[in-house]
């Protein structure tokens, strides 16, 4: 049956959009390829979302999910493969089924970028991790490496340095994009060291991670860092591959849409971390969900 609005992605942006679509008196189907919740599920503590002094990402998003369900949101676990314009609406094709709607909201978010080196895939879950707060505890009193130079990398290194034997921050440039204050704090720590201006060549290990092999940009020499765990924090990629032929994306894959969340295709809106914008926080995801939800509701009228 044709829905008024299909929302692709069930993180904070998508679920907030559903709430606004439903409260505007329209039907909403939310389709999610993984489990609902999005990236915030990985955060054990959220302290910057208004209304909660401290709440876990899991509890927060569970509450929002239940809120949307109580308002009548339909939820489907399916991986969306394509969105096509058909007549005055859209056909959303997933692995399991096809769905129709008058309007579509893309709220698929972003995921951690992979380093793309030999050994990374094979040793994923065997020492290679993309979530320090999830897996850090397995490296108590052990040696770890954080790859990256942004805020996430620095935050991950700070978190790990509290209980790891040693943390090496490995970055492809000399300079860091992350907060200078955080960088200063890390430089003062006895168990944190830096290997910068290098290219990572390989993550090596037979059964599990044993070391990282790199090339120094200045000298061209090869080097290696022994480690039990390697945390990759080299940025994010938006989950927008499936709509690249339909709507305009920037070179990094983010959906080009302004604060009105409208894409270049009338009837398709973008909300949350997959949209090109300067600030990606829970609050801005909720804001996008609000704007996109109301806009989609109005479009269907």
């Amino acid at each position: 049956m044709k829905k008024d609005v299909i929302i692709i992605g069930a993180g904070i942006a998508g679920l907030t959009a559903a709430i606004y679509v439903l409260r505007a008196g329209h039907s909403a189907l939310c389709i999610e390829g993984a489990n609902y919740g999005g990236q915030i599920v990985n955060s054990p503590e959220v302290e910057n979302y208004p209304g909660y002094q401290n709440i876990s990402g899991f509890d927060l998003v569970n509450t929002v999910f239940e809120q949307a369900k109580a308002l009548g949101m339909e939820y489907q676990n399916d991986k969306v493969l394509s969105v096509k314009k058909e007549g005055d609406g859209f056909v959303v094709s997933g692995e399991a089924a096809s769905y129709e709607a008058a309007s579509v909201i893309i709220a698929t978010g972003a995921k951690r970028r992979k380093l793309g080196v030999s050994g990374e895939e094979r040793l994923s879950g065997l020492g290679v991790s993309y979530c320090a707060t999830c897996d850090g505890m397995f490296y108590r009193k052990k040696d770890t490496i954080v790859c990256g130079g942004g805020n996430t990398a620095l935050e991950d290194a700070m978190f790990l340095s509290n209980f790891c034997n040693h943390v090496t921050i490995c970055h492809r440039r000399d300079g860091f994009r992350g907060e200078p204050k955080l960088l200063e704090q890390l430089k003062e720590k006895d168990n944190v060291s830096f290997v910068t201006d290098v290219t990572v060549d390989e993550i090596a290990g037979a059964e599990k991670v044993e070391k990282l092999i790199y090339t120094d940009h200045k000298t061209g020499a090869k080097g290696e860092i022994p480690a039990n765990g390697i945390f990759i924090a080299v940025g994010q990629i938006p989950d927008t591959e499936f709509v690249k032929d339909l709507i305009s994306l920037d070179e990094a894959g983010y959906v080009i849409a302004g604060e009105d969340c409208a894409t270049n295709v009338p009837g398709i809106f973008a909300a949350g971390d997959c949209r090109k914008k300067p600030v990606r926080q829970l609050t801005t995801a909720a804001a996008d969900g609000t704007v996109a939800g109301l806009a989609a509701a109005q479009y269907t009228e």
């Binding site: 609902y36 990985n42 054990p44 999830c134």
Partner: peptide, 8 residues
């Protein structure tokens, strides 16, 4: 303490 575990 693992959010994704609670999801599962």
């Amino acid at each position: 303490w693992c959010g994704p575990c609670k999801m599962l």
